[in-house]
Amino acid sequence: MAEALLTLEGVHTHIGQYHILQGVDLTVPRGGLTVLLGRNGAGKTTTLRTIMGLWKPSRGRVTFAGRDIAGLSTPDIARAGIAYVPEAMGIFSDLTVAENMTLAARRGPPDKARLDWIFAFFPALRRFWSQPAGVLSGGQKQMLAIARAVVEPRALILVDEPTKGIAPAIIDNMIGAFAELKREGTTILLVEQNFRFAAALGDTVAVMDDGRVVHRDRMAALAADEAAQTRLLGLTLDAHQ
């Protein structure tokens, strides 16, 4: 197994009076795509937000590339090389597509070759390059959110349910983009409800329930084991297709 790029050890997160994460242990191997599965309310999004520093863990360690990042601020975590694509996309509607991309490119103007690579998967972004991002459709906004995260090479990308409410044609493009990112060595932690999408891309999988990781495996093994899918997720791969 590849060395771990990100590890969470006994991470607890409280949001107000609610104890959401109750000792999450998770390892994300370098260079692979790890899928985080689980029922609604299992704590998947809170895990991503805790890694990103948007919620501070009340206990536990979050180690990224050998460095404890649990106490760092969100901007410092982002500068350490982690990009985050939230479920709500979080695009800046009043800014143009170009300005959204430029804001995400912290090392200077976006690289032209990199942009061409992004446009190959998400051609709508080239078409709407000078338009305010607010005029994009839901699927195009999701493209922009992902494109913004990968406008520069990052060590780790956290992606929260990118396929939610997205047309199948765009999902296929996303699969292509994520596969290409994997090929270039980017590590991805993906929260996903669409099992087909997860199974097509995932190398490893962690299943969450009640604020803990309750199952770890290779994605291929879980995809082939209907009994485990039913036990862990209450559904099978077939039911998602």
Partner: peptide, 15 residues
């Protein structure tokens, strides 16, 4: 302008 629209998102971009 990014901060005005979505402060958390701007932070997550490293600002």
């Amino acid at each position: 302008q990014a901060i005005r629209e979505n402060e958390f998102r701007a932070e997550a971009l490293g600002y």
